[in-house]
């Protein structure tokens, strides 16, 4: 995407620079309109954008929640300025500030809020999704490898917003089982 954008930018700049040449042979107004407006103004963006749009939709499609096998369900509730996570597989368990999930399995995170709008964002795992009062939004993500990932709330929420972050700990299979048993770490 970046390369394409750079190419288009380069093209426009070259056209600008060349317009300062003295001996241009530009021809009739009719022809100019055909080249500049219909060709470069209409057809060119339409083509580029069509391609880009198709790409975006296809990729977007892949990121959407689908009926996964082996699905893990967790809930994330935000409040100023703390995230609380609960787990469908272990109803008694609640963690604050740290979300635990297993590696290699699709996870559905049901995102809600107890006060204002927040946004759940773990840059290395998925795009962001908002927590909106009265609504539940579901984010599907899948972590390939165990480890610790940083997450932040990405919707302005007042004075404590700067430090409003959380962590996602991704476990391998045995750790995950242990965690659900109530012995985290």
């Amino acid at each position: 995407m970046l390369a394409g954008a750079a190419a288009i930018f380069g093209l426009v700049m070259i056209l600008l620079v060349f317009s300062f040449r003295r001996n241009k042979n530009s021809g009739e107004e009719e022809g100019q309109i055909r080249v500049w407006i219909i060709g470069l103004g209409l057809a060119f963006p339409a083509l580029v954008l069509g391609a880009l749009l198709a790409y975006g939709l296809v990729v977007g499609e892949r990121l959407l929640p689908r009926d996964g096998v082996n699905l893990v369900q967790v809930s994330a509730q935000a409040r100023r300025w703390e995230w609380r996570f609960t787990y469908a597989d272990a109803p008694a368990l609640e963690t604050t500030g740290v979300l635990h999930i297993p590696a290699g399995r699709p996870v559905d995170i049901a995102i809600t809020t107890a006060d204002v709008i927040h946004s759940f964002w773990v840059p290395r795992l998925a795009g962001k999704l908002d927590a909106i009062p009265g609504h539940t939004n579901t984010l599907r993500l899948e972590a390939d490898a165990p480890g610790t990932y940083q997450g932040v709330s990405a919707e302005f929420s007042g004075a404590g917003y700067d430090a409003f972050a959380f962590q996602v700990v991704v476990h391998d299979e045995s750790d995950w089982a242990a965690f659900l048993q109530g012995q985290p770490e």
């Binding site: 426009v12 317009s19 300062f20 003295r22 500049w36 407006i37 470069l40 103004g41 209409l42 954008l49």
Partner: peptide, 23 residues
């Protein structure tokens, strides 16, 4: 993305104007 098309028309009409004249 569609909205970029009429914007493109204006931009290229202006560049075309520059080619037509002597900036």
């Amino acid at each position: 993305t569609l909205v970029a098309v009429p914007t493109g028309v204006q931009i290229f009409a202006w560049i075309g104007t520059m080619w037509k004249g002597r900036p």
